[in-house]
Design a protein around this nucleic acid. Sequence first.
RNA 1: GGGCCCGUAGCCUAGUAUGGAUAAGGCGUCGGCUUUCUAAGCCGAAGACCGUGGGUUCAAAUCCCUCCGGGCCCGCCA
Length: 634
Amino acid sequence: MSFLQVIEKIGEELKRSTKELGYEQIEPEVSEPTVKVHGDISSRVCFDISKISKENPVAIAEKISSRIKLDFSEVEAKNGYINFKFNDKYIFDVIEEIRKKGHQYGIPAIENKNKKIIIEHTNSNPNKPIHMGILRNTILGDTLARVFRYVGYETIVLNYIDDSGAQVSDNILAITELGYLKEPIGERYDYYSGRIYAEVHEKIENDLQLRKKKYEIIKKIENGKNEVAQLARQFSERVVMDQLRTCWRVGAFFDLLNWESDIVKSGLLNVVLKELNEKGKLYVPKEGKNEKCTVLKLSDQEEFKNLEEPDEVLIRSDGTITYVGKDIAYAFWKISKPPIDFKYRPFVTQPNGKTLWTTDEEKGEPKTLNVNNADLAITLVDTRQEYPQKVVKTALTFITDKAKYAYRPFLYGIVAISGETAYKISGKKEYVSNKIVHMSGRKGLVVNAEDMLNELAKVARMESRKRNPNIREDLLESISNEIAVAAVRYFMLKTDLNNIIVFDIDEALRLNGDSGPRLQYTYARAYSIIEKAGKYDRGSINQKLIKKEIERELIKEISKFSFYVKETIKDLEPKYLARYAKNLADKFNLFYESCPILTEKEEIRNNRLIILESFLVVFEKVLDLLGIPVLQEM
RNA sequence: GGGCCCGUAGCCUAGUAUGGAUAAGGCGUCGGCUUUCUAAGCCGAAGACCGUGGGUUCAAAUCCCUCCGGGCCCGCCA
């Protein structure tokens, strides 16, 4: 039994009894009451009914509740509410089912699981290390992927590499014209690339000659089959390798890298343009601002018509393709089976053992990877891209109705840094008074993910050593790194998607309170009890031996796992699971404080060990979905 | 000009979808709890006119409108 099943049953019961009483049929509202005294579940359905029938809700509640009989719950009418308090049968059934299902316990019953899901995340420009802003994208996307996979969907994770834009070309120019080395010395490739860009960008922008050359490079990258393109690809691949290392460090893995330059070379855009043209959505102005460009017509669309210039350029007058143009082609590929596909080759074997593939129009081979034609394609982008994503989606709906439900931009707020932190990393006093400062690679106002993780690991290491003076050095190393990962992942996941994260280094270095490390710590404490317990009688749980209410509360909380998994999928809200992990840890910590186990006499000891064991099974899986490494000691 | 997001204690946040029964955590401050399973924990105290004004309702942090403050987007950039 689980919370999810139970609320469904309660809903059905309420429906049945309202029907029997002849009331108007409304979908009964069922939710958790704000305070415990009102039970585990309560319904306000009587208030809704009374709006229609004009009868006193208190009287309705009496009538309805007297007709409800449930073997797992007491029913009570109070102040017009109908409250349900789960009994010990529920407690017993929950434990039994967890013991039967193990890690599968949190998988909700969802009707159609034969769907293919694409999740595209990270999407960093291949010219710099991954910073905290991109990491929010990576962590959100990875968690969604973990949850979809857990539930049973075929889930494919893509990483879009924007290698044909202006940023990569700056770096190539630095190497070919400005005397920068192809190989960095004593520096990671992604860091080297980021540094070059910061040093060189301004110079190029202010120099007409260089700027001209830059646009030649962009064209060459898009055309391919030349030395500059080869150099750019080589360079970008090295950077991407380093970026991937950072992703792997936080537990995120991919199935395919989609290179923007390959999208251009593949000719996919022509397919899309043909479709759009047939629908009469394209035109080429003979004069005016967009002279000789291929333009997407949006001015007749309701959501765009109030804009000054709603129409969108897809192909520039010089023949190059805009970002939105490329993205429409790519998005179309994701949700359909176009006549043109990419060429592929294996890129690298990841630490999880899985091959990461890459598109490569020059060195790859035609191959059926089955990584597109998704029923749902989720693209993680920060809110600044809301508008272009709307354009992409609208363009797709011109071609296929499927786009309406199958193409789903997933928006989240950016990560900025606090004034204090900006001062700290740049040394410039003027930032201190700012509430938020936007990250900028060019201004050196960036908190890189690797640096942050290293700092966190350092703090964790000191803490860990304090507690375990004799710990092996390599173990300490891995534990402190995993604590750092937990801290960052939880921090990113618990915050509402609409909120901007104002990142403050000092605040982020905290490992207590409402944090990822506290969740790990909770697990480690629980685990150490099981380990010390040795063999014990694993017979059934005995409800009569439950002495404290918190034992029941802990079990009830455990039983909510599948409910939150389902909600997370339904609303695409990773924070639901993060909050659940916290609530579950809270309950366990209370249990831990007031229910000694190893020192109790055998009956109670066994009973509590059974509860503990169920907690560990579920909590381990919850942490896994959040990508928080589980630690048996820390 | 058009569109989107945020405003809850000194600070950071949850709660807003589906209005209801005592606004929930964390940091910080103050005070407790280790002869007992890891104190990265737990308990307690102080701290909130839920940005403003109005409206809808038996009932508003939550819905509608006004205003104020902050952020973002609307390019032949990506």
